[in-house]
Each structure stands twice: as structure tokens, then as C-alpha cells.
Amino acid sequence: MSDRTHDEAAPRFGADEEGLTPLLERNIEILAKRRRRQLAEAGFPDRLAEAVTRFTGSMIFVGAQALAICLWVAVNLGWLPVLPRFDETFVILATVASVEALFLSTFVLISQNRAAAEADRRADLDLQINLLAEHEVTRLITLVRAIADRLGVEEARDPALERLEDHVVPEKVLDELEARQAQDGENP
């Protein structure tokens, strides 16, 4: 067994001088480690797509693109006589721009698919945490009502509290949401 007492092993809930609780700091560090691990475990194609998307979504890329196109146009209109004209009809420029757009859109889609998968994982985690919290709150309501009944507190007999003690069944909630969306003509 550890030399630490139960109190030392348990996370503290009081905020430190920076305003973050040790528990919050721990959670932030866990999330940061998980993100670093996921990035390290990503395959080369995913890392490449992420890097290309990150760069092409920057103002540096926009500036470089604008400069390259202006230079291309200036050269091929003959405004820079020190350089020979090589695309007087701008067909090559249009082809290069089309091919670039094709590749960039593919990289963006790869990155979006990866981000969507991560969002799905986070949504699943959020749902699990929310269901756990709902279950815990329901149990607490039951416990508090029992204590209030034992102490003879009149408000404990409120019929609305009885409904709050019912456990939520997620499947029924989802079924009802889908039924209402279908009834309203929305895509579920």
C-alpha cells in the first residue's frame, strides 16, 4: 500500500492562486497527453493532410498565393520584361489552379473526416458523462427525499419530485426525438 493517506491521494477541490483547482489542472493535463498521443499515433497520411490543411488555411499561404498569381500575371502580360512570357493565354495558370484546388480540397476533406471522428468520440464521452450525472442526481434526489421524509419535511411529498426520481432511459429519449423530427418533416 502507498505511504500516502487517503486525503493526500484524493484530488483537492480548492482553487490555487491561479484560480485552477488541482482536479481541473489534472484533467487538462490528461486531455493534453491524450491529444499528443493521438497525434503521435496518427499515420503519415493523416499528419501530412493535417499539416497541409493547417498551412493552406493560414494568412501566409493566402499572401504567398496572391504574390505568386500577381507575379505570374505580370510576367505573362509582359510587365516584367526581364522574365520571358511562358503562359500568354493563362491556360497553364488555370490548369495549375484547378489541380491545386483538387488536392487542397482532398486534404481538407481528410482533415475534416479526422476531426469529425474526434468530435464523435467526444460526443460519446459527453453522453456517457451526462448519463452518469443524471443517474447520480436521481440517486441523490431519492436519498434527499428519504431523509426529508424521515425528518417530516412537508416539501418532500411534492409529486414533481417523484417524477424526478425516475431514471431516464436514453433509448426512449432518442426514439421520441426521432419520432418528433419525422413528424415535423425533418431529417433525423
Rank of each mutant, 00 (worst) to 15 (best):
N76V: 13
F86E: 08
R163N: 12
I30K: 14
L83C: 14
E186I: 06
M1I: 09
T5N: 04
L174F: 09
I28S: 01
R54C: 03
V99P: 00
F90W: 04
I110F: 07
R37E: 15
A146M: 10
A146T: 11
D126A: 13
A156G: 02
D7R: 10
R35T: 15
L31G: 12
L164W: 10
V96W: 04
V173G: 03
G185F: 03
V173Q: 01
A101T: 05
G63H: 05
H167I: 09
E176T: 14
E154I: 12
D124G: 15
F107S: 07
R35F: 13
F55R: 07
A66M: 14
G185S: 05
V168W: 06
H6R: 13
E18C: 09
V99R: 03
L67M: 14
R36H: 11
D166Q: 15
N130K: 15
S58G: 04
T106K: 00
R139W: 06
D46K: 07
V91Y: 06
E178H: 12
P45C: 06
N130I: 08
L39P: 00
E18W: 08
L131I: 09
F13W: 10
N130P: 05
Q183K: 14
P22L: 00
A15S: 07
R150C: 11
H135K: 13
H6Q: 11
R122T: 06
P170Q: 02
T89V: 10
L177T: 11
A179F: 08
V73D: 01
E29H: 11
A68I: 08
V173A: 06
R4W: 09
M1H: 10
A68R: 14
V75W: 01
R35W: 09
R163G: 08
D7A: 10
I30D: 13
L125P: 03
V144I: 15
V96F: 09
K172T: 01
I30E: 14
G43L: 00
V96N: 02
W79S: 13
R37T: 11
N113H: 06
P159V: 08
V169T: 07
L24D: 10
I60V: 13
E41I: 02
R145M: 04
R54I: 01
P159M: 04
A116G: 07
L125C: 08
L102C: 09
Q38P: 00
E134A: 15
F86M: 08
I92N: 10
G185H: 03
G78A: 07
E25M: 13
H6Y: 11
G14K: 11
E186S: 05
A15G: 00
